[in-house]
């Protein structure tokens, strides 16, 4: 699933599956693009990790599962990002691999990562939560999916 990872503004698995950051006046935007909506959600979660640290420094040792339900795909995306944020801060873990399955209004996600090691991961910020600013879940050119929002840090 995962390809090349890198700290900074963006990284790509392929030309059709990638994440990137975008600017907001005081915070930062996360964007995931994939062949399916689920893949776009997975990539956006990678962008979330990259807001905090270099995803390449995080080993996918443990798995945490989350569930969300929302009839609005954009609010479901916000729920998904908030669920990842919640697991980061309550378990004190970072995640470097994500898997999402969607069925109707329901999302089931697998988060793979490890406990935070301050010296190794050097977390730059603690993300407070997803916002509705810049929020989009939509099909883009080529029939691919894009999911994005600004996160509050």
């Amino acid at each position: 699933m995962m390809g090349v990872l890198g700290i900074g503004s963006w990284s790509a698995v392929s030309a059709t599956t990638y994440w990137r950051h975008f600017d907001h006046g005081s915070d930062i935007g996360i964007r995931g693009v994939g062949r399916t909506m689920a893949e776009a959600f997975e990539q956006a979660a990678m962008a979330l990790t990259a807001v905090i640290c270099d995803p390449g420094s995080v080993s996918a040792e443990e798995v945490v599962e989350v569930d969300s339900d929302n009839p609005d795909p954009e609010l479901l995306f916000v729920d998904w990002i908030d669920a990842v944020v919640y697991q980061v801060v309550t378990r004190q873990m970072l995640f470097s691999r994500f898997r999402v399955e969607m069925s109707g209004d329901h999302l089931h996600g697998w988060l793979y990562g490890e406990a935070i090691d301050i010296g190794r991961h050097q977390p730059a910020v603690e993300v407070k939560g997803a916002t509705l600013t810049g929020l989009e879940v939509r099909r883009i050119e080529g029939g691919h999916w894009q999911a994005q929002c600004v996160v509050d840090v």
């Binding site: 090349v4 503004s9 963006w10 790509a12 030309a15 990638y18 990137r20 975008f22 600017d23 907001h24 006046g25 935007g29 600013t133 810049g134 600004v150």
Partner: peptide, 15 residues
């Protein structure tokens, strides 16, 4: 790797 100009998205970064 995907080319990226590093320019902010005009949609969400007001210029």
């Amino acid at each position: 790797m995907r080319a990226d100009t590093g320019r902010p998205s005009a949609l969400w970064m007001s210029e």
